[in-house]
Computed example of a mutant assay.
Amino acid sequence: MKHIENYAPLIGRILISTIFLMAGASKIPGYEATQGYMQAMGVPGSLLPVVIATEILGALAIILGYKTRIAAFLLAGFSIVSAIFFHANFADQTQSILFMKNIAITGGFLFLIAQGAGYVSIDNGMPVKE
Rank of each mutant, 00 (worst) to 15 (best):
P44K: 04
M38Y: 03
S96R: 08
A117C: 11
I56D: 08
G42P: 07
V128C: 10
A40R: 08
A71V: 09
D123S: 05
I14V: 09
T34W: 01
F90W: 04
F111C: 11
S46C: 03
A53N: 06
K27L: 01
K27S: 02
L74P: 00
A83I: 06
M22E: 12
G58F: 12
L10R: 06
S46K: 01
Y66G: 09
S46H: 00
L98R: 14
A72I: 07
D123V: 01
M38T: 02
L15N: 00
G77R: 11
M100V: 11
L64I: 13
G65Y: 03
L64W: 13
P44D: 06
G24M: 09
M126T: 14
F85A: 12
L47M: 14
P29Y: 03
E55S: 05
G125A: 12
E55W: 02
I84K: 00
K2D: 13
T106C: 15
Q115H: 10
A104G: 13
S96E: 02
N102F: 08
R69I: 11
I84Q: 04
Q35M: 15
A71H: 08
A117F: 09
F86G: 06
Y119Q: 04
F85E: 10
T106N: 12
T34K: 00
Q39D: 11
F20V: 04
L57P: 07
V51T: 14
A71C: 09
K67Q: 15
Y37T: 08
I97G: 02
I103Y: 03
Q93A: 15
M126K: 08
G65W: 04
F90T: 00
G116W: 07
G65F: 03
L47K: 00
S121T: 09
T34M: 14
E55H: 03
I62A: 11
I113E: 09
Y66Q: 11
A88R: 07
K129A: 14
G65N: 08
G36I: 01
